[in-house]
C-alpha cells in the first residue's frame, strides 16, 4: 500500500522508518523531544516516593466510587470490633444513629448506587447488590434508554445480563456503565453477573 505525504510525515513523527521518510516529520520529532524534558529531579523524586497521604486519598476515592465493598470498609475501619464498655452510651448512640439512618435512607437510596464492583474475570463483570433482580432490571432499562438491547438471565442462582454494544461505545452507553462501575468492554461484549452480599 503506497503512503502519501501525510502518512510519511506521521510515521516519521512517530519514529517509524518508512520508505521516502519525511524529513520534516523527523525534525519535528527531534524538536518536540528536546522540548518535553523530564520533570526536574527533585520534583520527580518527591512524587516517586511512597506517600501515605496520597495513598489514603486514593483509597478514599476508591470507596466513594464503590470499588471497595461495604464489608471491606467495615473491616478496614475496625468497626466490627465489639465494644463492651460504655454500653449505655453505645446504646444511646446506636438509637441516635438509627434515627438518622431512617431519615436519610430514602435519600441515600435515591442518590447512591447500591451496587458494588466485586471484580471481573474472563470478560464477566461481577457486581454485588442487595437486590440483584432489581438491579438487573434497572440496568436493562437504562441500557435500553441508551439505545442498547440487553438480555437478562437467571440460571443456577446467577442473575445477570448480556448485550452486544455497538462499537465504538456511545458516550451515553458509557455513562450508564460507569454509573454502575461496569468496565466498558473493548470488544463490545458486555456480560454482567450480580450477586447478593455474602453470595459467591
Amino acid at each position: 500500500m503506497s503512503m502519501d505525504e501525510l502518512d510519511r510525515w506521521f510515521e516519521a513523527l512517530a519514529g517509524r522508518g518508512v520508505a521516502g521518510d519525511s524529513e520534516e516529520g523527523r525534525a519535528l520529532r527531534a524538536q518536540i523531544r528536546a522540548h518535553t524534558p523530564d520533570l526536574p529531579p527533585d520534583l520527580l523524586a518527591a512524587v516517586a516516593q511512597v506517600d501515605p497521604a496520597r495513598e489514603a486519598q486514593l483509597i478514599a476515592r476508591a470507596r466513594t466510587a464503590g470499588l471497595l465493598s461495604a464489608e471491606h470498609m467495615r473491616l478496614a475501619q475496625g468497626t466490627d470490633t465489639p465494644r463492651r464498655s460504655n454500653f449505655a452510651r453505645a446504646s444511646l448512640m446506636a438509637a441516635t444513629l438509627a434515627g438518622i439512618a431512617i431519615g436519610v435512607t430514602t435519600l441515600w437510596h435515591a442518590r447512591v448506587p447500591t451496587e458494588t464492583f466485586r471484580g471481573a474475570a474472563n470478560g464477566i463483570v461481577e457486581l454485588e447488590a442487595r437486590d440483584p433482580r432489581a438491579l438487573k432490571l434497572r440496568l436493562i432499562q437504562e441500557l435500553q434508554g441508551a439505545g442498547v438491547s440487553a438480555t437478562g438471565y437467571e440460571r443456577l442462582d446467577r442473575v445477570g445480563l448480556d448485550a452486544d454494544l455497538p462499537l465504538p461505545v456511545a458516550p451515553n452507553v458509557r455513562r450508564v456503565l460507569e454509573q454502575h462501575h461496569i468496565p466498558v468492554p473493548s470488544d463490545g461484549a458486555l456480560v454482567v453477573e450480580i450477586h447478593a452480599p455474602g453470595v459467591e
Binding site: L58, I59, L67, L68, S69, G119
Partner: peptide
Amino acid sequence: CREGGTAIERALRELDR
C-alpha cells in the same frame, strides 16, 4: 481484578507506588 475487595485496595496502593 479477579479477587476484588481487599485485593483491589492492596493493588491500588501498589499501582500508586
